[in-house]
Design a protein around this nucleic acid. Structure first.
Lengths: 290, 290
DNA sequence: AAAACCGTGCAACAAATGTTTCATGCCCGA
DNA sequence: TCGGGCATGAAACATTTGTTGCACGGTTTT
């Protein structure tokens, strides 16, 4: 059995948690959720807040391999110590292959993507959102890796506009939906290099039908941007690695949804609350622990 | 005389310092310089390290207006509490309606999300990627808005590992897949508050089966992180707006895929090339214009 | 120069802490 | 149905904690 990385006491706790008796799971969860108080306040205090027996904390510590609560707390305290300001920031740009090469790759990727986000222009997003707000119906298309962006947009828009949003190509072949485009409706197409034929066809159909075309793409010269009323640009190739980056597209999609929601005013808010209430009634979500 | 801002116990200490007896000054400086230890370790411990008398700490606390060391330490503890999650979010959230309100919303959102990305830890991602690399089979689960992340991950991993990656719940009810988990396989679960029951069930099933569990979540105390071998954290609530941010999760997913690909070496590269060749042969993509 | 004062270390104190033990209740297997 | 083992809460335990009283040494005041 491979030892699962003793890195942090919190992760040891997390890993051992499911195999613990019920009461110890409760206090374990409490410790994980309130680790700051765990390091600063006394065992009895914590027990009172958690509504558990003080002894449970000692037992928990022993159950995950410590000699007692004192030792567990000491480990948590050291783990939280702010001295190592940069915990392990592979800031060492050591690009030579080795155990840190992977970490450097991730760090570079994240940095590059973070740098790309502020370069997205807000103005077109706000304008596109207004178009969405006024659209009688919203179609969304995205293929291959862009499908995830399309589905996210579809999901979020539907939270407060249940009846007027539709993902293209889910309830039949694309062509069925393509023929349904009408003036006054909006079509969102997401894509980047290399562009799929399917997405270009959607864009063309939208343009010919007179619907408002919104393209989320990596270039103004992308095929689906031709004839588009709104083009929202992101940087797909900005990050190292072999796959184009989608964080920009996701950020645009979420901003688009947020502004559209804001434009919806109280009506949208009411619909969202209604949707949430319905989900809660179906007990979709795990209740927050008090 | 204007009260010199009782804001922080540390500043009270600093202000009162010069008018204190020499020994208390030493102790006071020690506390100011080691305030983390001051909140976590015992008075006697501190005295030993500082080379001072334990009583000096009590006297110091009383000298600057507290009833005793306990009260001073409590104040220091509260001052250090990380509850104020966004230390820089002093951003005047004016948000008064106006023609530029939408644009400001988008700009804020993008800035916040860009700020959140560098806070993602690279180390756990690299470790999780290694686990993926060694897994005989990879399962992926994500519900509601997290489904988009799951699908992206599924898509990218399949580009170079076609036969061993599977999205949970697409070819039948979840339970069918849940029963198929085996030791030596990896299960990725993506989720954030509010957590869906379905995702928690997947995580539990993975843990019980002995499979390697990788959780992509917004908190170490997320239910699906319990028992997880790897927890990859992102900030879902970092950005303004009504929907939690998914850019962090997407960035993690893509980094995970990138590192896993890198670990795959030439074999993975070959498979990717093969996949791309097949797609090109089916003329999925629009040819680049010369 | 003597006395009053303050700063300081030491040691004893009571309170609180973490730990252990024990009795109880529960569940599972025989 | 009856044991055996385990989880759990309450109470007793030894230890450690923060505090306070006291004595000593130095400085200032009268």
């Amino acid at each position: 059995m491979p030892e699962p990385a003793k890195s942090s006491p919190l992760s040891e706790l997390r890993i051992a948690l499911p195999s613990l008796p019920m009461r110890l799971q409760e206090v374990g969860r409490f410790v994980a959720a309130n680790d700051y108080d765990a390091t600063t306040r006394s065992m009895r205090d914590l027990a009172a807040v958690a509504g558990a027996d003080p002894a449970a904390f000692t037992r928990l510590a022993k159950a995950i391999g410590y000699s007692g609560w004192d030792e567990l707390r000491a480990a948590l305290t050291e783990a939280r110590r702010p001295s190592q300001i940069a915990p392990f920031s592979g800031r060492t740009r050591s690009r030579r292959p080795g155990p840190n090469a992977d970490i450097a790759l991730v760090t570079d990727k994240l940095e590059a993507e973070a740098a790309g986000l502020p370069r997205i222009s807000a103005q077109p997003i706000a304008e596109a959102a207004r178009a969405l707000h006024e659209a009688k119906r919203i179609w969304i298309a995205g293929y291959r890796s862009c499908r995830s962006v399309a589905e996210l947009l579809n999901y979020e828009l539907r939270l407060f506009r249940p009846e007027h949003v539709q993902l293209i190509g889910v309830s039949g072949p694309d062509d069925l939906d393509l023929g349904a485009f009408r003036r006054g409706e909006a079509v969102i197409v997401i894509g980047f290099l290399p562009y799929t034929h399917a997405s270009v066809r959607v864009a063309q159909a939208a343009h010919h039908s007179g619907a408002t075309l919104i393209a989320i793409a990596d270039s103004v010269s992308a095929p689906m941007a031709e004839g588009a009323d709104h083009v929202l640009l992101f940087e797909a190739a900005s990050s190292p690695g072999f796959f184009p980056s989608l964080t920009g597209a996701i950020a645009i999609a979420q901003s688009l949804a947020a502004v559209t929601f804001a434009l919806g005013g109280v009506a949208a808010k009411k619909r969202l609350e209604h949707t949430e209430a319905r989900l809660a009634a179906a007990s979709t979500y795990v209740l927050e622990k008090g």
